[in-house]
Amino acid sequence: MILIGENIHILSKVVSLSIKEKKAKPLQELVIRQAEAGVDYIDLNVGPARKDPESMRWLVEITQEVTDLPLSLDTTNPKTMEAGLTVCKVKPLINSASGKEESKQEMLPLAAKYNCDIIVSVLTDKGIPSDTNARAEAIMETITYANDIGIPNESIWVDPIMFPLCVDQVQISEFLEFIKLMPDIAPGAKSTLGLSNLSNGVPHHLRPILNQVYLVMLQRYNLYSSIVDSFDNALINLVKGKLPETVNLIYRAMDGDVDLSTLSQEERDIVKTVNVLTGKTLFSNSWLEI
């Protein structure tokens, strides 16, 4: 699975301050640490940067000073996006476009112009679709439009937009279905999602196990890539195949084939987490305690 490291994000205080004051050092350190952690892309989120679209150009340049990894340029502002695209040395990823009219007019054409891959979300002017069918319908429309302006399916990474678990548990299990259906919905297109959103609102110390288990479940359904916390070591080891026994346990729990009584505490927690993510048990913040 292709992992996109999310740790250069404008919502982080260090990042926003460093970008504002054009201090390269803390940002370059973050890039180096993420690359060492084993991610495949470095996401650069500068926000819309309406007052300073050139900040993306600067960020791309200082990032490329310390890594050869491809970059995921993350902004909703097409001007900011283009400022970054002009200086990328390795084919970057545009993160992201959507089915909103404005995005179709200004963001999607950049993928054709710069011949790069682009994340396209299921968002449209009508909002975020509410179920699997609506998601499929929305993304098919946007992909057709993208094809018409010269972007092939192979360059499109579909983001189905996941709500947090504590907002809508049912949707989390439906999501697996959507990923499974992806090859039928858009042959050749890739899939991606922002994993950390899954555990938004959950107490901090309980977030990693949710993210880790869910990503393995998604990987089983051939999710192509994910935007992740680069510093979640266990997560990266799991999806890179370094913990085959845990992966196997998750698969068996998905198939309902596990006897809890023979398991260790840690293994039991994993099975309980699978049961929450498949919708088998109702989620609450105490899901590991029962």
């Binding site: 548990q169 109702l282 609450s284 913040n285 105490s286 305690e289």
Partner: peptide, 11 residues
């Protein structure tokens, strides 16, 4: 909120 409802019952 159903998740909070369960949470309180657990506790």
């Amino acid at each position: 909120d159903i998740n909070l409802s369960k949470e309180l019952n657990v506790k």
